[in-house]
């Protein structure tokens, strides 16, 4: 147990030292959010309708930028070899890594998405489903990112993005739909429940697959 707490602390420390890990998603998000009104239209009516999708897509794209971070450095510097040699439970360690990656790359954006109320004229009553759907949906995206990252370790190939998009599609649809539902006065809890179900169902599977993919590089 001490072992895993130590790994958790280590990951936190590394991410907090590596300022790019959490600043670049935030900057990416802020730039995109301020470019949409300029690029599309500054008409509040149009922006309001597009806002749920725009926010979700921006979050998705910023994770697309950061998913390589989960394992690539560990692979380059040899930490993964040491983890494998330690004989410890690798899936728990991978889970810790995904969790810390989520804290640093997704959580700040989720908090910042509140800004869309001012910048995209997003109605305030939509904030609750926006935040909830992001909180439940983004961990799933991070899981996919971990799998894609583990599979495409060491080489930049089309594989990562080509995998991320189709896998994330259902989450994106359910997430934006939840927001649109609530804005139209429809009960959105079924969407949130589905998102939760996807997360709970996929967590062990993707974790297992990611560990398997990592081990494949050491064969």
């Amino acid at each position: 147990m001490i072992y895993f707490i130590k790994i958790l602390k280590k990951e936190f420390l590394i991410y907090s030292r590596k300022s790019s890990s959490f600043i670049s998603p935030v900057v990416f998000f802020l730039i995109s959010i301020s470019l949409y009104p300029i690029g599309i239209s500054n008409d509040p009516g149009i922006l309001k309708n597009l806002a749920p999708g725009l926010i979700w897509i921006t979050v998705l794209l910023s994770t697309l930028i950061s998913f390589q971070n989960i394992f690539s450095e560990d692979y380059e510097d040899g930490s993964i070899e040491l983890l494998l040699a330690s004989g410890q439970n690798l899936s728990l360690i991978v889970l810790i890594k995904i969790f810390v990656n989520w804290i640093f790359s997704c959580l700040p954006i989720i908090i910042l998405s509140v800004l869309s109320v001012f910048l995209l004229y997003f109605p305030q009553e939509g904030l609750k489903p926006l935040i909830i759907s992001l909180l439940i949906g983004t961990p799933t995206i991070c899981l996919f990112g971990a799998l894609a990252g583990a599979l495409s370790l060491g080489k930049n190939s089309i594989t990562g993005p080509a995998l991320m998009l189709p896998l994330s599609l259902p989450v994106l649809i359910l997430g934006t739909q939840a927001i649109n539902y609530s804005l139209n006065g429809i009960n959105f809890s079924s969407n949130i429940l589905l998102l939760t179900a996807i997360l709970v169902f996929l967590l062990p599977i993707i974790l297992f697959a990611s560990v398997g993919a990592l081990k494949l590089h050491f064969n």
């Binding site: 495409s152 080489k155 080509a162």
Partner: peptide
């Protein structure tokens, strides 16, 4: 189509054929 691309792209990611 994307999955096909991912499968094709994946071929070159691993050093070992079996992996």
């Amino acid at each position: 189509f994307l999955f096909y691309l991912a499968i094709i792209g994946m071929q070159s990611t691993f050093a070992s054929r079996k992996s």
